[in-house]
Amino acid sequence: MVSGFLLVIARDLRLALRQRADAWLAVLFFVLTAALFPFGVGPEPNLLARIAPGIIWVVALLAVLLSLERLFLADFEDGSLEQLLLSPLPLELAVLAKVLAHWLTTGLPLIAAAPLLAVLFHMDLAGLGVLLLAMLLGTPTLSLVGAVGAALTLGARRGGVLIPLLVLPLYVPALIFGVGATDAALQGFAVRPHLLLLGAVLLVMLVVTPLAGAAALRQALE
């Protein structure tokens, strides 16, 4: 069972490596969209520094959103999902493996690119550590919640447009606690409660997503 779990992760990572353009696209979107904000709100350093955590989080969330559609769609269309369902590996674990691979190829690159944005937005670099820690706890939640949305919309009309509608409201807690942690760090308040809450949300979704995701995939393949 463990080996099956690792096999699925290894396969998805290998697929992502062979199609590197997709992973780059999310990071590129992340940086590019964030770079639009100074044009929108003006280049005043204090203002940019103040809104930096919020912008980094919102843009990261949108970048993850952009990558969600292909999480299950390719496997659904070429029949791999059917085979995965009929493998001895429990589908719940297969879902978890695919989400983990998605996070490794989407969430992790975003975290790696976040310091660049922090510099561009004149963010006080004392808060950088907390920003990265919060993203480390928060972006897996984005992948987990998103996976449910991606699984539910398989085979739907306009599936790609539906995903944001289903997923964005559910992203609110991660966004609030994620930005809250970074803001607290920058203003010298306690960071711990925010991070703990972020972790709690992650734990809840670690339970919910495999169950709901597997149920969604089963009904998609009926």
């Binding site: 085979g155 739907a156 807690p173 919910v208």
Partner: peptide
């Protein structure tokens, strides 16, 4: 969103259950 209404029912049911788990978290946050 589905041609087959049964699929729509089933998908929406799963979404509603995920939603009801998340509502207290959203409310709290």
């Amino acid at each position: 969103a589905f041609e087959d209404s049964q699929r729509g029912y089933r998908a929406a049911s799963i979404l509603a259950l995920v939603g009801v788990v998340n509502i207290p978290i959203i409310k709290f946050s």
